[in-house]
């Protein structure tokens, strides 16, 4: 083994190591995803309440974030990631239903994207639909720490 190979291997190892340490825990990752969903619902909510003027680009961006994040969300709960989180044990005990509830939000967001809410009233209706999805899942699968 020459010096070059060793140097290369060391570099690869170091890169690999830093990649591992920089990787977030499943808890941090899914909380970040949910935070982005919350921010998007907040942007829609501001329009619904009339705090912000209607803006098609904001509506589209928000719905896209919700759709993208919620579809990946149910995969962020590997075995052993129960601790230090608001995830209820029911997520693992009743995983198919948990996934179905996430899928419902994804579908509802996609339906809204397909015919974008065009004014404040339409955004109000959209927020109601999405909000019902949020709480129907949080009712069973999120618990306050």
């Amino acid at each position: 083994m020459n010096f070059k190979t060793i140097a290369m291997a060391t570099t690869v190892l170091c890169l690999g190591f830093s990649a591992v340490t920089a990787q977030e825990t499943p808890q941090a990752k899914r909380e970040q995803m949910m935070k982005q969903i919350g921010g998007s619902v907040g942007a829609l909510g501001a329009i619904a309440k009339g705090d912000k003027p209607y803006d098609a680009a904001t509506v589209e961006k928000s719905l896209t974030t919700i759709s993208t994040n919620i579809k990946a969300f149910p995969d962020q709960f590997p075995e052993g990631s129960e601790g230090n989180s608001e995830a209820a044990p029911a997520i693992w005990q009743n995983n198919a239903d948990f996934r179905a509830k996430a899928a419902k939000l994804g579908n509802d967001a996609d339906t809204l994207l397909a015919s974008l809410p065009a004014d404040q009233a339409a955004v109000q209706k959209a927020v109601q639909t999405l909000g019902a999805d949020c709480s129907s899942c949080h009712q069973t699968y999120r618990m306050k720490k």
Binding site: G38, V41, G42, G131, C134, S135, Q139, R142, M143
Partner: peptide
């Protein structure tokens, strides 16, 4: 509406 001021949603038994 079930939304907190920062647009988190109601959860747990409080949802009902």
């Amino acid at each position: 509406t079930g939304f907190t001021p920062d647009f988190d949603s109601v959860g747990g038994q409080m949802a009902e």
